[in-house]
């Protein structure tokens, strides 16, 4: 065999080998990604089924009336217990936090995308990333040592209150709202900004007549994402809200949320008791609400015009 022929044979064999190993890699890759996807789906279904089973036991095994459970404000761990004050507390904190964080978040998003792009990217972006990275217990600690006394001394009440919860959770969801809003505003085509400027609009007119309306569905999505996070927040809120089992009278009054009651009561219940089962039902409400938030996000995002 000549050298050239030999070389050709070697190349041929190498190519063939490469091709079969490429095929094998392809299959391995496929298996890895399919398995990953399957695990995520299975985990979601398993959590839903498990929480459903545990949470519904309250109504089907302990025979507690669902309506009573959802509307009563007494909470004593017996079968007469109702979760309304916590449902109210969770929604109150969520909406108040959104009310606090949405204007600031969207405002900063506009600032960093439209007003001071360089400064926004250099300073605001890292600040937001740091805010995301701070653990929830730290927010709680700051809430207890700074916000709570501040409210007690300047506004009234004990300090532990819905208001304190609103501020702490509001700050926690701020980066979520800001970064999703900023992405939404960045996605507005420059064409329509040019159109507004070309018609004699000032920068502010362009922002509030064109950019905000065009980004509105995405901005709503940002707010709902923030609310979903606020609804599920447990640790920090538990530290500042006071955890009083009853409906609050005012914003400076103490309250409790679904999450704070679960973390608070769970260690004190015996497995299989009514009280324990009631807590699982609270968990089920949280899960159902997170599904509701996802549905809202889907519906709102699908209305995007651009």
């Amino acid at each position: 065999m000549s050298k050239a022929q030999n070389n050709e044979a070697v190349t041929h064999r190498l190519l063939k080998k490469n091709r079969s190993s490429a095929k094998r890699n392809e299959r391995t890759g496929k298996i890895i990604v399919f398995t990953s996807a399957a695990i995520i789906i299975a985990a979601t279904i398993a959590i839903t089924l498990f929480l459903g089973y545990k949470g519904l036991k309250t109504f089907f095994v302990f025979d507690i009336d669902i309506w009573n459970f959802l509307t009563s404000t007494t909470w004593d761990g017996t079968s007469e217990s109702g979760a309304f004050s916590f449902i109210f507390g969770s929604f109150a904190v969520t909406f108040l936090a959104a009310l606090f964080a949405a204007p600031i978040g969207i405002g900063s998003a506009i600032f960093m995308t439209e007003i001071a792009k360089k400064w926004g990217q250099k300073v605001l972006q890292p600040v937001i990333e740091i805010l995301v990275g701070i653990p929830s217990v730290v927010y709680g600690l700051i809430g207890v040592t700074v916000i709570v006394p501040l409210i007690r001394n300047h506004i009234g009440g004990l300090g532990f209150s819905l208001l304190a919860g609103m501020i702490v959770v509001g700050v926690m969801i701020l980066p979520t709202i800001t970064s999703i809003s900023a992405d939404a505003i960045k996605a507005i085509p420059i064409d329509i900004k040019d159109a507004a400027y070309g018609l004699g609009a000032t920068r502010w007119q362009t922002i509030y007549k064109v950019i905000i309306p065009a980004a509105l569905p995405s901005l709503m999505t940002a707010i709902v994402f923030g609310m979903a996070r606020a609804f599920g927040e447990a640790l920090a809120i538990q530290m500042v809200i006071g955890n009083v089992k009853g409906l609050p009278d005012s914003i400076t009054d103490q309250a409790a949320t679904l999450t704070s009651i679960i973390t608070l009561d769970m260690p004190h219940t015996t497995y299989g008791s009514v009280h324990n089962s009631l807590l699982w039902s609270l968990g089920l409400i949280l899960l159902v609400m997170s599904y509701v938030f996802i549905i809202i996000i889907r519906v709102v995002s699908s209305r995007r015009k651009i």
Binding site: P189, A196, G200, A214
Partner: peptide, 28 residues
């Protein structure tokens, strides 16, 4: 720019109604 109108390379209507598009300049 209110006296000197501009038409761009790519049609760039606002994502608003036809009426709102045309009334935009007057409204601002």
């Amino acid at each position: 720019r209110t006296k000197v109108g501009m038409v761009f390379q790519h049609p760039n209507p606002f994502p608003k109604s036809i009426y709102e598009n045309v009334a935009f300049g007057a409204k601002i």
